[in-house]
């Protein structure tokens, strides 16, 4: 434990370990490859599934912003994902605005909800923080369940249109085109997360995570920073949820149920927390697994996803991406050392 703390102090930011800091070109290579994968995804994967991966990736990144960078485990993020899904759906259905505007509206609604939630939740840490967020999420779930005139209750909000001005027909004709219409929203969200993490604000977050007392002693208003990052995180989850609901053409209680909050934490931990890249990796794994297993004829999907989770948590503490990155870093270091020896 103490060793871990020391290493965190050494490293400025967890997302920028010495590896990429020393070799900046690696970051650009990583970004280029990432962008390539994102753009090429619907050619190799069924487009609606690719869209799900992208939405879940941003959702996981939003959780990582709290969990990995600020040390707050939110167990109620489905509330923001779902609130935005419903709000986006209602705007698109009743106002008929283009879907990016509706998604933005959904994200704003999620942020508005996050204000009081965050205000109350950040007063506690650890398990109490998780419980407060879970309690709020359950409240939202029951409101959506009961408010049937607006949300459709158990049946969900069905038939959300995909509007996009003159391109409406094109994106409705094939999910393939919709992917390219919606992916900029997801990329915008990822860019935002990247900016947050690589800003002075992001550095303060990491300081708060590692030593809140010291951060406070340095004059930072810890609670206010936590509320800010909570609201920002909710906004990102909202962007993802909005895209998800437009992509599927509906919003249902599934978006708000507590297992969705659990699933996104699972996705984040699988990929690796505190890495930003971890979320997309975890999302791709979980969504693809669910999709493949659903058609496999195998009747125990939970057993497989559960077993993978247990293995990853026990054997690869830093998640898939974290383990891969650390492994690469160690390899490069050892290579340099041998070179220097010679």
């Amino acid at each position: 434990m103490s060793q871990q703390l020391v290493s965190k102090v050494d490293v400025e930011l967890p997302s920028e370990p010495s590896l990429t800091a020393r070799r900046p070109f690696l970051r650009w290579v990583g970004l280029a490859v990432g962008l390539l994968v994102v753009l090429a995804l619907p050619w190799y994967i069924y487009p609606p599934v690719a869209m799900d991966i992208a939405a879940w990736a941003l959702f996981a990144i939003s959780v990582d912003l709290l969990l990995g960078y600020t040390g707050l485990l939110s167990f109620g993020h489905a509330a923001f994902w779902g609130t935005s899904a419903y709000t986006t759906g209602l705007i698109a259905t009743h106002v008929g605005l283009p879907f990016p505007v509706a998604v933005l509206g959904g994200a704003i609604a999620a942020m508005l909800l996050a204000l009081p939630t965050g205000y109350l939740a950040v007063r506690r840490t650890g398990i109490y923080f998780a419980m407060v967020t879970l309690a709020f999420a359950q409240m939202v779930y029951f409101i959506a369940n009961q408010w049937r005139d607006v949300t459709g209750g158990e049946n969900g909000l069905q038939g959300i249109p995909k509007n996009l001005g003159g391109m409406t027909d094109l994106i409705n004709s094939d999910a393939f085109y919709f992917y390219y219409a919606a992916i900029p929203i997801i990329l915008l969200g990822v860019l935002l997360a990247w900016r947050i993490v690589n800003s002075p604000f992001g550095r303060v977050l990491v300081a708060i995570r590692d030593n809140p007392a010291r951060a406070r002693a340095l004059g930072y208003d810890v609670e206010r920073y936590k509320i800010m990052v909570f609201v920002l995180s909710a906004g990102l989850a909202g962007l993802a949820g909005g895209v998800f609901s437009v992509s599927h053409g509906f919003a249902s209680l599934q978006e708000l149920v507590w297992t969705t909050s659990g699933k996104v934490v699972l996705v984040t931990v699988l990929g690796g927390i505190g890495t930003l890249w971890g979320g997309p990796v975890g999302a791709a794994l979980v969504v693809l697994l669910e999709d493949r297993l659903a058609s496999s004829g195998f009747n125990g999907i939970g057993i497989i996803t559960g077993a993978i989770f247990v293995v990853i948590v026990l054997a690869f503490r830093h998640g898939i991406w974290g383990t891969a990155r650390n492994g690469l870093g160690a390899w490069l270091r050892s290579r340099r050392r041998t070179r220097e020896d010679v």
């Binding site: 799900d52 659903a294 058609s295 999907i301």
Partner: peptide, 23 residues
């Protein structure tokens, strides 16, 4: 005859239905 498991989740049902019709 093809089959898929929707796990009682509407989002999976929705994707699987698209996939069944298209693919």
């Amino acid at each position: 005859v093809v089959q898929a498991d929707h796990q009682n989740k509407p989002d999976i049902a929705n994707t699987k239905a698209q996939e069944m019709y298209d693919r």
